[in-house]
């Protein structure tokens, strides 16, 4: 169970998870290795989105825009001869800077308006990328992105990228945990509940919202940067609106505001999609079956999960664990809080 039982037990769980994360890449079959990379990348993006939605109460339907910005901001200098490792810096920094700049006016919008604003922003970014051909390669895309590396140290194989990615996942989770536990983090939680109450309590609401927006964009930018090096080719078509929606789905399936929820959501959704593609492409299947099957089953999983566990998988599990514990120990403040937050947040949109 994911809920904390006791600190020592929790530490043990984290240690086992970490060991498994490290041990897994070399033993996975090749086609699962890149899947492993993608789960990590999506978990990074989803973690930012979950922070934005769960803790700051803001919705983004355009998170893939920052994923794209990060990818291009990392790939363009590298293509022009800059050391590729620099991209791990330029990707998140440029994405966060753009988010901070547009966040100031954009975050004046709330709820559905903000959802629309972020969606529109992504379409505008995609159009810009497609039209700025000299810089971005336009619709055709940017080819020949060099592998990630510094000097002679280069990441080429999926296993190496898996380590890079999961290192990034760890860093992102640690940052997120510290943000959540910091004083501003507690203020943010107040923000998600009631913005006016938080403002009345002296929380600089507007500034915090922009900061979280920038942080979540930075996460997406970092994941985008790794993605660009991993695939060595990016195009506007790699970042459709459906990808933003997929991030939203991962956040909701895992559970908003739960850090682990982003990992669970990313893993569940990515694995389901992959599994369906595998089944669909078995030799005996007619040609249209893969698409039909993957759309249908993905949709059904989505519908069933959201109808049965409207607050997401992780909050539902923690709530169940807390209920089971209630007889001997009172639920910890953290789980009770998560639970309440998850149910509140289901009304973000």
């Amino acid at each position: 169970m994911i809920g904390p039982r006791a600190p020592s037990r929790r530490a043990l769980v984290v240690a086992v998870l970490a060991a498994a994360t490290l041990a897994l890449p070399p033993v996975l079959p090749p086609e699962w290795q890149s899947l492993y990379v993608f789960i990590g990348l999506y978990a990074i993006v989803t973690c930012g989105l979950s922070l934005l939605m769960g803790f700051a109460g803001q919705v983004s339907l355009g998170q893939a825009a920052f994923y794209a910005i990060g990818a291009y901001a990392a790939a363009i200098p590298a293509v022009h001869g800059a050391p590729p490792a620099l991209g791990l810096l330029t990707g998140p920094v440029v994405a966060a800077a753009i988010a901070a700049a547009i966040g100031v006016p954009l975050l004046r919008l709330r709820g559905h308006y903000l959802a629309f604003g972020t969606l529109a922003f992504q379409l505008i970014v995609l159009t810009f990328i497609a039209e700025a051909g000299d810089l971005t390669g336009g619709d055709i895309g940017l080819r020949g992105i060099p592998p990630l590396g510094l000097g002679s140290l280069q990441a080429v194989t999926p296993v190496q990228y898996a380590y890079v990615t999961w290192l990034a996942v760890t860093a992102v989770f640690l940052v997120t945990r510290n943000v959540v536990r910091s004083r501003p983090g507690r203020a943010l939680r107040a923000l998600a509940t009631s913005e006016s109450a938080a403002a009345a309590a002296g929380v600089p609401v507007a500034a915090y919202k922009v900061e979280v927006f920038a942080l979540s964009a930075g996460y997406a930018g970092l994941a985008g940067a790794i993605y660009a090096f991993f695939l060595s080719y990016i195009a506007p078509g790699s970042f459709p609106i459906l990808l933003s929606i997929q991030f939203l789905v991962m956040a909701a399936v895992g559970g908003l505001g739960a850090v682990w929820g982003s990992l669970v959501g990313a893993a569940v959704v990515t694995l389901v999609v992959q599994l369906l593609q595998e089944i669909g492409s078995l030799p005996a299947m007619p040609t249209q079956v893969p698409a039909v099957l993957s759309y249908a089953v993905y949709a059904l999983v989505l519908i069933v999960v959201m109808l049965l566990l409207p607050s997401g998988i992780v909050p539902a599990l923690t709530a169940r664990a807390a209920r089971r514990r209630r007889d001997d120990v009172a639920p910890t403040e953290a789980t009770a809080g998560d639970d309440a937050r998850a149910s509140r947040l289901s009304s973000v949109l």
Binding site: I245, M306, L307, P310, S311, S343, L345, S346, S347, L349
Partner: peptide, 16 residues
């Protein structure tokens, strides 16, 4: 059923 869950269900139906 909360509106965010319903919204995602409609997305699911679109994909279906």
């Amino acid at each position: 059923t909360p509106p965010l869950a319903s919204l995602i269900v409609t997305l699911g139906l679109a994909i279906f």
